[in-house]
Amino acid sequence: MIRACLFDLDGTLLPMDTESFVHHYLQELASHVADVVSPDKLVRYLWEATEAMIRNSEAHKTNEEVFVEHFLQLAGVSKEEIWPHFDRFYDEHYPKLKTHVEPTPLSRRVVEAALEKGYKVAVATNPVFPRVAIMERLRWAEVDDLPFEWVTVYEDMHFCKPRPEYYREIADRLGVRPEECVMIGNDMQEDMVAQTVGMKTFYLNQCRIDRGHPVYQPDQEGSMEELLSAIREGTGVFSD
């Protein structure tokens, strides 16, 4: 029996061309800290520190701790020198990136339908961003005011997609077994991997991302409209 719905954010609740969005995000961020670290170096350090988060298997370290440790070591600067620039960017400039996403009212309807059915609902976005950035994207998706049980942000999580431990950690936070969860997302490798811990999966075929390997067989596939119908009618992975 399904007790919890896990929704990916980028490309799922918030339709976007993820590659294009990340490009604009890095370009904007780099220009705002150019006085501390040159743009070309900053982008490289950000990617390397992010990769360190994704590879991390130490459960006692949050993603934030892993990222900060690796980034500062690579950049050769102190946190006091550069973090105020990051904070200012997220507060003042990050909201302007909304022009690079394509919100849909269906996202709110889908989440509301899951809540009406009594499911515990979590935002299972890859926690490689700070809370302020993820909450801003939830605002763009017009779902930020909904009563999510949990939102995965890098300050709190200890693993990233596509590690199976990421999905186990969410289930633990929600107080359910993985087998009682449905992971809903548009990324074959990062989202459908949830089935390796026993979760059901719904592969959203809009804004889909598939790198070719590994290949998973989703329990269900469809559009946002079909997802909404399945939740409301209790069909497919949402059937009792």
Score class of each variant (00 low, 15 high):
residue 125 T to S: 05
residue 45 Y to Q: 12
residue 109 R to A: 12
residue 45 Y to W: 13
residue 10 D to N: 10
residue 220 Q to D: 03
residue 187 D to S: 06
residue 91 D to L: 13
residue 239 S to H: 14
residue 13 L to S: 04
residue 179 E to N: 09
residue 172 D to S: 12
residue 54 I to W: 05
residue 85 H to A: 12
residue 166 Y to G: 03
residue 166 Y to W: 10
residue 103 P to G: 01
residue 82 I to H: 08
residue 71 F to Q: 07
residue 182 V to E: 05
residue 81 E to Y: 05
residue 207 C to I: 00
residue 236 G to K: 07
residue 190 E to P: 00
residue 184 I to M: 08
residue 73 Q to A: 11
residue 44 R to Q: 15
residue 75 A to S: 03
residue 49 A to Y: 06
residue 57 S to N: 14
residue 88 R to I: 04
residue 43 V to M: 13
residue 38 S to C: 11
residue 41 K to H: 11
residue 108 R to P: 04
residue 98 K to W: 04
residue 165 E to I: 05
residue 39 P to K: 09
residue 229 S to M: 07
residue 75 A to T: 00
residue 82 I to S: 03
residue 84 P to C: 10
residue 138 L to N: 12
residue 104 T to H: 01
residue 192 M to W: 02
residue 56 N to D: 11
residue 17 D to V: 02
residue 151 V to F: 07
residue 91 D to F: 07
residue 121 V to F: 08
residue 135 M to R: 12
residue 162 P to Q: 05
residue 108 R to N: 06
residue 151 V to E: 10
residue 1 M to R: 11
residue 40 D to K: 13
residue 82 I to Y: 09
residue 235 T to K: 05
residue 211 R to L: 13
residue 210 D to S: 05
residue 105 P to I: 12
residue 151 V to C: 07
residue 105 P to T: 07
residue 47 W to V: 13
residue 191 D to R: 02
residue 122 A to P: 01
residue 238 F to Q: 08
residue 91 D to I: 10
residue 120 K to E: 03
residue 139 R to S: 15
residue 38 S to Q: 12
residue 91 D to C: 10
residue 88 R to F: 06
residue 238 F to N: 06
residue 57 S to L: 15
residue 110 V to D: 07
residue 67 F to D: 09
residue 90 Y to F: 13
residue 149 E to Y: 08
residue 54 I to T: 09
residue 182 V to P: 04
residue 126 N to V: 06
residue 116 E to L: 08
residue 115 L to M: 10
residue 171 A to D: 02
residue 197 V to M: 11
residue 179 E to C: 08
residue 52 A to E: 15
residue 109 R to D: 08
residue 9 L to G: 06
residue 66 V to L: 05
